[in-house]
Nucleic acid binder design. Structure first.
Lengths: 116, 116
DNA sequence: CTGCATCCTGCGCGATACTG
DNA sequence: CAGTATCGCGCAGGATGCAG
């Protein structure tokens, strides 16, 4: 568990993995868009780590126009399922979590704009 | 999901939560022992955050000898279940993960002692 | 035993610019 | 488009000491 945590318990990995969990391969910038405010450096590092762990696969589509896609592996899918359970839990209970602290300023920072 | 990650995707929270997931309440130092090489400061901070989020409960057993126990709440249990799924996944696939990188030196460093 | 205060460090990660 | 190189910084978290 420690080892797993060392691999995925950072700020972005789970989100990136979720973004890659598509039937189709997903392009670099598409992942970027889906995930949100991630820097290319971090995304690149995260993807390489996921690749090393056999969770996603990198595939060059077209060398001339530089097109690359990432696709979750079957092994990755076995991980994304438990993660999906967690995601659904988060969706059901997120209000409970933010009810207690309010101190989150957010990387998204889209929903708390009402205060002048 | 971002919010959930902000709460639990640090180095220790999930481990601490797992350590608290007992039928009985668990004492501070007992958690420390179960979790491993966590500093009291970090453990304390982690526990307070879990408490704020209603995941664990703090209860003073004895004021004179300073005995405190932490117990997972029913809400916390709903979270520990998905986490348990993840844990089981980790147990089944940890070899796959460490097969790819070998670069983990370990906070526990207890299982690799066989090599002279 | 159960913490809190303090000091200190690494590194995770963001911003930006550059390349093929 | 898909990255890599560089710089800088905030903060998680380790170590240590103290206290009720």
């Amino acid at each position: 568990m420690r080892k797993l945590l060392n691999e995925i318990s950072d700020k972005w990995t789970i989100l990136v993995l979720t973004a890659c969990d598509d039937i189709e391969g997903v392009r670099f910038n598409e992942i970027k868009r889906r995930v949100g405010a991630i820097s290319p450096k971090t995304l690149s590092a995260t993807l390489r780590q996921l690749e090393r762990n056999g969770i996603v696969e990198r595939r060059v589509i077209d060398r001339s126009v530089l097109a690359v896609e990432y696709r979750i592996t079957s092994f990755g899918r076995t991980l994304s399922e438990p993660l999906g359970v967690l995601l659904r839990w988060a969706e059901m209970n997120f209000f409970q979590i933010l009810a207690s602290q309010q101190s989150y300023d957010g990387s998204l920072a889209g929903e708390a704009q009402g205060r002048s």
